[in-house]
Design a binder for these strands. Structure first.
Ligand SMILES: [Mn+2]
Ligand SMILES: [Mn+2]
Ligand SMILES: [Zn+2]
Ligand SMILES: [Zn+2]
Lengths: 162, 162
DNA sequence: CGGTTTGTTGCAAGCCAATTGCACTTAAGG
DNA sequence: CCTTAAGTGCAATTGGCTTGCAACAAACCG
């Protein structure tokens, strides 16, 4: 009942960075991480390479499939992701029910998503997001601090809609 | 690492319905459910009573604590919730990491939420939501169907912000 | 370049909310 | 009543994390 998709679905390929530019960003990212006690390990570099090159939400399982991370222990990837989260460099998205998605925090990048209830496809919303203003209003009127948001549109993708 | 709150936090108490009005709505709800093969059982009535009376997101654990559901098996509550979801009468929200929240679908009711990253408090957004227009635009331009959305603002509640 | 400190990793075990199989019970309809 | 299909309790299982611990290896220091 309520069974979800289980195949590996493809994400939309928005927000991609060139191979060369990625390397520079990785170096920069690692450098800033040094201040938080991170060391430049192969696993960290491989992880950042993927998540910067293709700025999308990934499940831990998806990350474990990535080149240069394939032979890594799942616990290693898990701890890297969590440590990045603690450092404020990783965001945990709860797009689907049982699994979490993770996406690197890149200054100036914010994305909302569309998710298909039928096949699980996740696609970036190709429209500008106007919620920053609402955030300001909420912080001002309710006294909350440091608000950001997570917005997901849910429905049937063109393929599943027939 | 990244440890979340674990105590039972209170929800904001918006969207409450009077005791008498609730009974009428429950009867109406059950009646419409009959078309989907539902039977009027004590567990179903108790569940609807809670979720209509206080239209909020609940975890399965929270539902299991409710009067008249306390002595029920967790599997019973789980299957009721899932069957309602399959019938399109229940929405599964992914507000937090490991546990799902469920909220009854009531025509004309739509809510967005604020969640405190520190204490886990969940509060309804007291402003009107203007995303229906964006949904129409997305369906029109991208070909998705039946879109609804889930919007959550995340930050520090007044208490946790000091 | 050794030696020391401390973050990192593999491996295996554990955790826990959800999920399911099965036999029994009960609402609903005739 | 009697039949049929939905609902339920109970126990066992799943699966996505999550953690303890010993072995490793960046970074740093003299
Ligand atoms: Mn991006
Ligand atoms: Mn409501
Ligand atoms: Zn689809
Ligand atoms: Zn708080």
């Amino acid at each position: 009942m309520s069974d979800a998709h289980s195949h590996t679905h493809s994400h939309g390929q928005s927000c991609v960075v060139s191979r060369g530019e990625t390397e520079a960003l990785v170096d920069e990212f690692v450098a800033s991480l040094r201040a938080d006690g991170f060391r430049r390990t192969d696993a960290l570099v491989a992880l950042l390479r993927v998540m910067i090159r293709n700025h999308q939400p990934y499940t831990l399982a998806e990350l474990a499939e990535v080149e240069d991370l394939r032979e890594r222990d799942q616990a290693t990837i898990y701890r890297l992701v969590m440590k990045l989260k603690d450092a404020g460099k990783m965001r945990q998205l709860n797009l689907a029910g049982r699994v979490s998605y993770f996406q690197l925090v890149l200054p100036g990048h914010h994305h909302d998503y569309l998710r298909c209830e039928s096949c699980g496809e996740v696609q970036e919303v190709p429209l500008p997001c106007a919620l920053a203003e609402v955030e300001r209003e909420l912080m001002h009127s309710l006294g909350w601090k440091g608000l950001h948001h997570e917005l997901e549109f849910i429905g049937l993708c063109p393929a599943c809609a027939d």
